[in-house]
């Protein structure tokens, strides 16, 4: 309202002025109408629809883009779910296979161990038997040899004069050497 006051004051100061700024002159109305009609006409029937068309097109494109992105996203999510499911399945299967292999391996090991220990038992038994047999044989042969040796030793001792220790010692050494040779002979034979 300050504005109005200012204008009224300005108008009053110039009392001789025939113009009232609040009452339009006829030419003012005429030109205003023409100019405003032209602007409204051009804008409402030409310029704004042209711009609106572009704006609509852009909105459509953006909406289309958003929809496409949403579709892609849901597709990706579905694919991810599928892959995850497949992966879980594959993992479970792998675990199962591993478990099977492990139990099978255990079984194989147990079987192998069993058969191996059987074999060992048999081998030991065979070896034992062989050893027994050989010992028996050794005992028998020793018994006869010891007898023969003893009688030989006795005959030698009797055959030789037993005056000094040196001779005696020599005789025993010679006997033992013979004995040794005999044993190594019999060993070589046996």
């Amino acid at each position: 309202m300050n504005a109005l006051n200012l204008i009224v004051v300005a108008a009053e100061e110039h009392g001789e002025s025939s113009h009232n700024p609040l009452i339009p002159a006829n030419y003012d109305i005429l030109w205003s109408t023409i100019i405003f009609l032209i602007i409204v006409g051009v804008f409402m029937w030409k310029i704004l629809p042209m711009l609106q068309k572009v704006l609509d097109e852009r909105a459509e494109k953006i909406e289309g883009g958003i929809k496409k992105a949403e579709e892609a996203q849901s597709e990706a999510a579905a694919a991810l779910e599928e892959y995850t499911a497949q992966l879980t399945e594959a993992r479970a299967e792998a675990a199962r296979i591993r478990e099977d292999a492990r139990s099978e391996a255990g079984q194989i090991v147990a079987e192998t161990r069993e058969s191996a220990s059987g074999d060992a038992q048999r081998l030991v038994e065979t070896a034992q038997k062989q050893i027994d047999a050989e010992r028996q044989q050794a005992i028998v042969s020793l018994r006869s040899e010891v007898g023969a040796l003893a009688s030989e030793l006795a005959s030698r001792i009797v055959g030789e004069s037993l005056k000094d220790d040196a001779r005696q010692q020599r005789i025993i050494d010679g006997f033992l050497d013979d004995l040794e040779a005999q044993v190594s002979d019999s060993k070589a034979k046996g």
Binding site: I35, I38, I39, V42, F43, K46, I47, L48, M50, L51, K53, V54, E57, R58, K61
Partner: peptide
């Protein structure tokens, strides 16, 4: 004012792109 306003908007609207 009217001519400049119409001219500016006409030039822009004529070449408006997405």
């Amino acid at each position: 004012a009217a001519a400049v306003l119409i001219l500016i908007f006409w030039l822009v609207a004529r070449k408006a792109k997405v």
